[in-house]
Design a binder for these strands. Sequence first.
DNA 1: TTGAGTGTTTGAGACGATTCAAAATAATCT
DNA 2: AGATTATTTTGAATCGTCTCAAACACTCAA
Lengths: 339, 339
Amino acid sequence: MATRNIKEVAQLARVSVGTVSNVLNRPEIVSPATRERVFEAIKKLGFVRNEVARHLRVGRSRTVGLVVLDVSNPFFVDVAQGAESVADDHDSMVVLCNSAGDPGRERRHLDQLEQQRVLGILITPVEMESPWLEELVARGTPVVLVDSPATGLQCSVAVDDRLGGQIAGAHLIERGHRRIMFVGGPPSIKQVADRHAGVSSAVAAADGAVELLTTTAPTLTVGEGRAVGERVAALPPEERPTAAFCANDMMALGFLQAMATHGLRVPEDLAIIGYDDIDFAAAAAVPLSSVRQPRELLGRTAIDLLLEEVADPEQHRHRQVIFQPDLVIRESSAMRRDG
Amino acid sequence: MATRNIKEVAQLARVSVGTVSNVLNRPEIVSPATRERVFEAIKKLGFVRNEVARHLRVGRSRTVGLVVLDVSNPFFVDVAQGAESVADDHDSMVVLCNSAGDPGRERRHLDQLEQQRVLGILITPVEMESPWLEELVARGTPVVLVDSPATGLQCSVAVDDRLGGQIAGAHLIERGHRRIMFVGGPPSIKQVADRHAGVSSAVAAADGAVELLTTTAPTLTVGEGRAVGERVAALPPEERPTAAFCANDMMALGFLQAMATHGLRVPEDLAIIGYDDIDFAAAAAVPLSSVRQPRELLGRTAIDLLLEEVADPEQHRHRQVIFQPDLVIRESSAMRRDG
DNA sequence: TTGAGTGTTTGAGACGATTCAAAATAATCT
DNA sequence: AGATTATTTTGAATCGTCTCAAACACTCAA
């Protein structure tokens, strides 16, 4: 490894290291002639600035960590892209970490990020209560909660999941469904709990005429969605719900696949509605109705808040930004023929 | 920011900084009593090791950069997950960077990664020829090409895309198609060129009775696939191909959507076959036939090669690993009724 | 009592860039 | 020319950790 350092550049350009540093950071204060000499030396040696040393000295990193629940869920990829687009404009970098819903992995990622002294962390936490995260904040790493509840300890951006659940529930009820199933995940995940609460309230508002069944899968994946779907398909028709509201689109897609393999028609035999409105929802076997979240905006806003906090920690007041979801109706919850 | 350093820990534990460092890195060589004292001090102060300083001193990072063509393509997410699973076992970290098919973005990411002195870089390059990348290698950063041609300058892992194209083409021809369209992207992307070459050779082998049309979209996205699909759907039936082989599943999904919105039946009016076999392919409106690649294995192997090179740069000989794709037949290319 | 042999602990350099007060040089004005 | 101001350049100190030769503390055998 032939990595050249600032000293070698200085030597070749016959200037001091201070001058080379100036050329790199405030070229306007060094005379054109010297500047030129230094640039030449840099090119000739193939010098690449060591960001690690710079960071150590300056005490401030340019990278932001983003810890998500599931990278294979396009929802989070979109959030990440939103964050990255903002980071780009501030020549910082987003590193994407996948907790995969596992508190252990999450903790390891947080440890690593803190050790790297990142500028800050954006996170969709696995669990609502996380002493680990609180300690991290207390030690001084700015954190913004993404798509997650506000604890007041830090900034957060979220979408009103309760409202989302409510919209979905109301929609199904209005379509004539009286036996609805919530296909959820671990209630420790705030999003799941809220979406459930939302649909519950819609059901409650429907005057007791509507039944709500609830399932809890360990993870919010296509596979789990399919598994639940299999179980539902196996039920005798009279016990089967007529509509399923899935905690996210991944599960909805899996659920839908299970319906298809068991010859159940969607939405005639069973309507489905998902959550997130990922791009693949529209391309599904039966185009999926879904509760849409402003995905990129979520990511963009999160990093905006973080950068704001970093820019002026004294002045900064933590804020809770909440967006409204909206319903995208497609074929999977179209009007039932029978009514 | 109240970040504690090793010196403060040493002070509190009444030992030297060297000892604290030893406790952190080789706990077995320090006496149990001291070790305990140091651990206590660490806990009391909330000390978190500064990886940046460590890295500067040791001269060796623990993170690997992975630069992909498109994070929103689940194929690359799967590759990334494969890489990450290996990195985990070597307590290193993968940072995922998205070039989005843009050489400028790719270059900026490479710059950043080099400045961070990452352990090495895994990359699916935007363009086949990349002097920039070669210089980077020459300056000493180990690089492994992923799903990309071998230049001999570094290791690479790839899937035989030519074979993949051939398999797909042969399959369609065997199904009776005589007018096939290749829905491709920029031929500067090696994968696209190879898949095209593959299907061409299959067509050539079919004794001149088969026509191959070729389209080139600027990017391999769902949107572009849909756009091409729109154009195809607008053609008079006799000019329309009877089958489309898409350069990847994203495009195939878009293409499929266009067929649906124009009332063309798949596979009866037009068969479709994609590439990558991403998980969403099976959940598509019409389950998608696709050429499967060992996605996680690709990522795992890539980082294995990288770590091997890093572990013993002298001994290391660059290797080119090539996997075989295979065909997954689903409904979108099922036998045509009319034959 | 000395010396060798273990096992621990110490502390003074690195690592590579940035900063900033001070020095050197150049430019401007009496 | 001499004084004054403006512009450049310098180089030592610093960031937090690791390394390694040397110092220290024991134990045991001679």
